[in-house]
Design a protein around this nucleic acid. Sequence first.
DNA 1: GTGAAAGCGCTAACAT
DNA 2: ATGTTAGCGCTTTCAC
Lengths: 359, 359
Amino acid sequence: MLARVKPVSTRQPDDASTNGTPSGLRRRPTINDVARLADVSTATVSRVLSGVAKVSPEKHAQVLRAIEQLDYNPSDLTRAVFNGRSNAVGVLVADMRNPYYVDLVRGVESVITEGGGLVFLANGHRDRERQEAILRAMDAQRLRGLVITANRDIDEGAVRRLADRGAEIVFVTRPAGISHPRIHSVRVDDEAVGALAWQHLRDRGRRNVAVVTQPLDTPTQRARLRGIRDAARLDGVDLADDRVVELQSLDEPALGLEEVLKACGSTKRGAVDAVFAATGIGTLRAYQELMALGVRVPDDVAFVGFDDFLWAPYLASPLTVVTQPTLAMGTQAARLIIDEPGAAVEHVLAPGLTVRAST
Amino acid sequence: MLARVKPVSTRQPDDASTNGTPSGLRRRPTINDVARLADVSTATVSRVLSGVAKVSPEKHAQVLRAIEQLDYNPSDLTRAVFNGRSNAVGVLVADMRNPYYVDLVRGVESVITEGGGLVFLANGHRDRERQEAILRAMDAQRLRGLVITANRDIDEGAVRRLADRGAEIVFVTRPAGISHPRIHSVRVDDEAVGALAWQHLRDRGRRNVAVVTQPLDTPTQRARLRGIRDAARLDGVDLADDRVVELQSLDEPALGLEEVLKACGSTKRGAVDAVFAATGIGTLRAYQELMALGVRVPDDVAFVGFDDFLWAPYLASPLTVVTQPTLAMGTQAARLIIDEPGAAVEHVLAPGLTVRAST
DNA sequence: GTGAAAGCGCTAACAT
DNA sequence: ATGTTAGCGCTTTCAC
């Protein structure tokens, strides 16, 4: 693994003694400047800053005055170098357009900035190479922790290495899958997600349910499918494979829902009378396709989506959705990072159901 | 301004010589380890890393081998300390729930991570104190640049200080408002936004337009209102103040649109026959209120919103919207930061119009 | 081409 | 209580 490095900012010649300050500007004050102005040692300034050891009231005041006067703001970089790690936390998502991520990031951000830290946000783009680069960059920042979500093909070796180096890792919406005292997981009970959808549709009198999922090569997707299948079976219904539409490319709109609807005979008895989209993206895709096909929702087909969003109540057919407590997942992930539990933790949260007119 | 500092991670006693590595783990390899293993000086390792000065092929190979063997990843923190600044860029938004921010951040992120940098994302929450804290924290990171959006009450003094310290600042969706060679602006032509809305509604035969804005104490909002007013006047229509609804609290749903509709007599001739919401949040609020009032869109009232979003085509009344090139605004902002133009730059982009069934 | 050494801004022993 | 000193990990003169 070559440490490819770009000369991000080759220091300008005239920069030599100006501590990186752009030419033509007075250089940024350092702890030395403060010490000099306050007529104390840098150690004393540092003590005032950290508030740990005690400093005489006079010197304390002097230092404060000097800080104010110079508008001194100590470098977190230097501190981080010293500590061996920063107080920044990374969040790696796969596709920021999914509103789900927004709340997740909001949750993480609120906890972390509250604690004086800062959040790095990066977009893996479902691209292995990109993810690697980001992980390296984040590792180079010596960050305290990293939240990873929806990067299905993430390099687990790289993640483990980060954890080995001391970062707390939290996978969100997937089981950790890696046994390591610093690799955790926060997710919704995916089987309950499926069960919830089934029970609601059943209560609405629908039994011929089609399911839209993302590729079934992830535990998350499989668990959701298993959940609805098991629940259906309890009611004597077999949710056969021909009722499952596995969304392949996440960008192509074509879904194949039409075939399923047709194959199952959308007009006869026993026809598909409900669709459950088990993922956020699937929800949009399936809804699009239903509209395009001119299917009446919920008259012809009832529809349950996944993940609530701001406009859901105002759709042509206001959406019933299984929800996950996204914000809470974010805050819990952040807490794990801050608390450093010392052993792997798995938080599994209960999903919810918001009923609207689409069912 | 007191440099309040929390003891984020008081170094553990046993940490003393373990460079911050959690106990029980082999310490993270440093440039010294690489040098030792490769049997060269740290200077040589550094040269290989930066690729600037030339190193003999043999030593070069040795170093590379050592790097690989140790899985060495150089600290960007240390580099940043040396350079006086990091290659991180901050983005400060006010409310991440607005989809607009998502694309903006996406744009910034793509450019910055492409260049090997990383993006800090923080949420100002329209809270002055919070903003201050974030600005301080970001300054403490010595970041290369900062994108600020929608923090109407941002402390301009604090921003200027950041710029003085060498950071490139880009205000998005507002004019810079601060004259400084490192403070820039990227925004849409706000008067054109208003004009576009007017022209479209006029072409649809609507002339009695009500406008929903956010508080008019910002240049952005005023410009949009001015834009639609000027355009209307050109058509001989006076858009009086009683046609303008100024959204106060952004969280309260109550809008006052009902009063306007009533006051203007929603059933008689001359009644309001169109609404233009000049902001993203206003779009949601106005749409909600129209639905709640049972107004038929577009039969009773045509509706034009601001900012497109994924679900806009699938609303009960698919939304016509004036759009801004949000992603491009993000990438342009990032470019400005990377390019360091050396003088204030203002990018003003043209808005677009996406016509759907709501008009 | 290469290494020794100084230093970036800060903190934490260790003295006093 | 306070200053002196030795680093944290890296880059860059400055000699050879």
